[in-house]
Design a binder for these strands. Structure first.
Lengths: 143, 143
DNA sequence: CTTGCAGTTGCAACTGGTCGCAACTGGAGC
DNA sequence: GCTCCAGTTGCGACCAGTTGCAACTGCAAG
């Protein structure tokens, strides 16, 4: 758990506490590459410590999201997924509303958009992790 | 209700029915400029016809969204809002995560992004109505 | 090491939204 | 008009996520 020390610092600086429950949730998020739902995280943490409450998981995720340590993304399947924010390799998703296929979108598209909005209006957008819906090339042909 | 005839055509062409409940929901959406939540629409329709079920409202909104007659937008306050799609005057929102202020964003920013994604990957994104979170100019100074 | 308290936790009650089902109905085709 | 059936409705049961609250606990300051 030594790799969490930096995160613990961030929590404390912002007036939050580093509790065992939180460290377990953090660990579940950090050591899993993919997108996890709140339920997934709950299950993982419960293996180690069966007394956690699901509401603790939700509240912790809300705190982490506020601190921008995790991103929250609606993947269109009805459930919200959470992912640890990494500095490198940011990515977004193109989700087809017909066939449900998911493609990746490189960050530079949204980075450019963000820079443009910032310089025009002064508003600094959080474009960490977007899910963009639409029609993939195949499904456009099918129509 | 004569102004709904065009919408009724769209519904029928796509194999859907124009029921009184739907017409009332449509009417509520068309004659209200702002963003309405499912609950708002439910309340409005219930004034005219008290026997509608909330699930009918949700299912109708899902159909209208699929037909792209309405947009669904999460305004960050925890509730999802719906808005009638107009051809002219599309707009997006810049929502400050600190003070909650909402600014409008002209469509051309996202139109350009959409065109770029389309020509690079063949994916045709639905960029009808976006809510972009971030920090407004004032709140950036405050930090 | 002790203390104080803001922040956190687990529980239970609640809420908003979804699903399955049986009954109903709009409207295309005759 | 009448018929038929895919699509729709209202209902009740259900489930994921939220909230209020009293008890607890990290941790900063003494």
């Amino acid at each position: 758990m030594s790799c969490e020390t930096e995160t613990v610092q961030v929590l404390r600086q912002r007036g939050h506490k580093a509790t065992p429950q939180r460290l377990m949730i953090l660990s579940a998020l950090r050591h899993d590459a993919g997108h996890l739902t709140a339920g997934d995280i709950f299950d993982k943490v419960r293996v180690e410590y069966p007394y956690v409450d699901i509401s603790t998981v939700y509240r912790t995720l809300a705190v982490l999201k506020e601190l921008r340590l995790v991103t929250e993304t609606d993947m269109g399947t009805g459930d919200t997924t959470y992912e640890w924010v990494r500095q490198q390799g940011r990515h977004h998703h193109l989700i087809c509303r017909d066939c449900g296929s998911v493609a990746s979108l490189d960050d530079h598209y949204l980075e450019d958009l963000g820079a443009e909005i910032m310089s025009d209006s002064g508003f600094k957008p959080d474009l960490d992790h977007f899910a963009i819906f639409g029609l993939c090339a195949n499904c456009q042909k099918a129509t």
